[in-house]
Design a protein around this nucleic acid. Structure first.
Lengths: 208, 208
DNA sequence: CGCCAGATGTGGTCGATGTCAACATGATCG
DNA sequence: CGATCATGTTGACATCGACCACATCTGGCG
């Protein structure tokens, strides 16, 4: 029982997604064109219609793949961080988010493109995004269990964490804050997320 | 003064920007079309060319106006917050950012649209964005002077703060975290930005 | 083996768009 | 009053997304 093997071209759907991503990397989201993608893959201009209802569907597919890649990267980093130091795992997760964004700016842009803002139209995309969020929530809850994260509604805390890393990623990609090296900005932002803007009273090291 | 448009519109440039914003609010960024905008204003399809070199230029103009409006809102809120409690002013500034985003989601989307990602091509836009950043930095520095903000490079701190409020705004606009009311999410996120994710030892009273 | 139905790709077409160039109009200033 | 230039118009063109009819391939079924 073989999977639906490619019939004519050979996995045209994935080839189109790949070509779309390449195109975006080269010339930006606005340059993404169904016809150009088809051209690159070597099919006629109407072939993509068999796999994507419209342009938005292609964008959504690229975005979905981006979310899956992001989650994979986060999970990998999380797994490789020492489990005994939960604050480090959470940190690593945040850094991983921004790292992925900087490594795949084109993907990130598509993932939050206005064209797929209405995720209810793209359930698969919504699910992939949701999984990223869940990864974050899980780590927050774990951090709370181990006393490394302040108590409170995990959803609220994870929303705050996600806001920070996401904003950080977007701003870095857009080059809004490139005076220093991106790595330094990431570290500084994640530190600040961890510690807060307000001064911490005791000069002595946090223990526990 | 009802006037049928004389041959010369008078202030076509601003009228186009306004119409563009309306259109985006009604039907989203992708629906923004030079021709449709021209239609709404009642001029022919090529008239906008006299004021905007291309579509991106119109988008940039809308975005620039968005940044200016955001800055105005932030300054207003900042001025109305008690100057003696710097942590409140900073908080208010953050809340103002997200408030503006939620009140003008269309504007926000345009301001960070991929079409104007390369701000070097739109110097005026870059300047307007820079001013928003400066407003934030100023408040951070003030907060540090008054001991309400942890010491450190103001640029780093403001980048972190900007990341948080911006990420918060984007996520809320995209409806990624709408389980609770937006206002509650904003408060929670700004609180977290202030206090940090890590637990704080003393349960000191902190209002608002 | 042969054939058919559905999946996949082709080629053509249509309306809309962004951009350009040539032209018309009217405001400004001598 | 007249010239000049910014502003708006008209017409054209290439490209795009979407749609359709048709061709071709695949896999299943008699």
């Amino acid at each position: 029982m073989r999977k639906k093997r490619p019939y004519h071209h050979g996995n045209l759907r994935q080839a189109l997604i790949d070509a779309a991503l390449e195109l975006i990397e080269e010339r930006g989201v606005p340059a993404l064109t169904l016809r150009e993608v088809a051209r690159r893959v070597g099919v006629t201009h109407a072939a993509p219609q068999r796999h994507f209802a419209d342009r938005a569907a292609l964008v959504a597919a690229v975005a979905e793949q981006g979310f899956r890649g992001l989650r994979a990267h986060m999970e990998a980093v999380r797994a490789s961080a020492p489990a005994r130091v939960p604050s480090q795992r959470l940190r690593a997760l945040g850094v991983a988010y921004v790292e992925y964004a900087l490594a795949h700016p084109a993907h990130l842009r598509v993932m939050f493109s206005p064209e797929v803002a209405d995720k209810s139209r793209h359930p698969q995309l919504a699910a992939a995004a949701q999984e990223v969020h869940e990864t974050l929530v899980k780590q927050i809850v774990e951090g709370q269990r181990q006393g490394a994260v302040a108590p409170g509604d995990p959803d609220e805390l994870s929303f705050a964490a996600w806001s920070m890393v996401h904003g950080c990623a977007i701003l870095l990609i857009d080059g809004q804050a490139s005076r220093r090296s991106p790595a330094a900005s990431i570290d500084a932002a994640v530190d600040r997320l961890h510690l807060g803007l307000a001064p911490r009273a005791p000069a002595r090291k946090r223990r526990r």
